[in-house]
Amino acid sequence: MARKLKIGWFSFSCSEDSTIIFTEILNDYYRQWKNLIDFKSILVMQRKSSIEDLDVAFIEGAITSDSQEEKLKKIRKNTKKLVAVGSCAVIGMPSSQRNQFVDENLNKEIAEILIRFQYKEKVLKVSDIVKVDDNVPGCPMNEAVFLQVINKYLKEFGISHA
């Protein structure tokens, strides 16, 4: 069997708008990609999930908790390339909007939730924590840039028909 590009799609704190765009991109590209791409993990589409030995991990969303940070670091260790997808992953916003709250009463009001559910003190963008190889900016992600990135990695990993 010909080698496929092993990808994982992981969402953290965000609206998952880029996930939706990705599922819509599949309307046009699924049949072209099915022999080229092995979806090792994409929770919105399948239960089976593996983050071992990935070629490319796509990361959507900002990092809000220590557990998310640990998971992100684990993904980074297990993938050759890591791509930040969408504005929350690339620049942190709008998921990091609580970082901008200056009103003391407001911060007191949200503090209880932050403590109870073990939030990080500040919401972070992906590159604050791990090395990012490529960015797909936009809210939602820019489809054309995403396709360029996919095609680039199909070529780089020597996947046939790329």
Binding site: S13, C14, S15, E16, D17, S18, T19, I20, I21, T64, S65, Q68, P94, S95, Q97, R98, F101, L106, E109, I110, I113, F117, Y119, C139, P140
Partner: peptide
């Protein structure tokens, strides 16, 4: 995890609000 939209919209302009709260959810 919460993103505190009902707090973040305070003080925002009415013309900007719909595009901001659209970001609550992609789908």
């Amino acid at each position: 995890y919460k993103r505190f939209y009902t707090k973040a919209i305070q003080g925002k302009d009415i013309l900007a609000l719909p595009q901001l709260t659209a970001r609550i959810c992609g789908t």
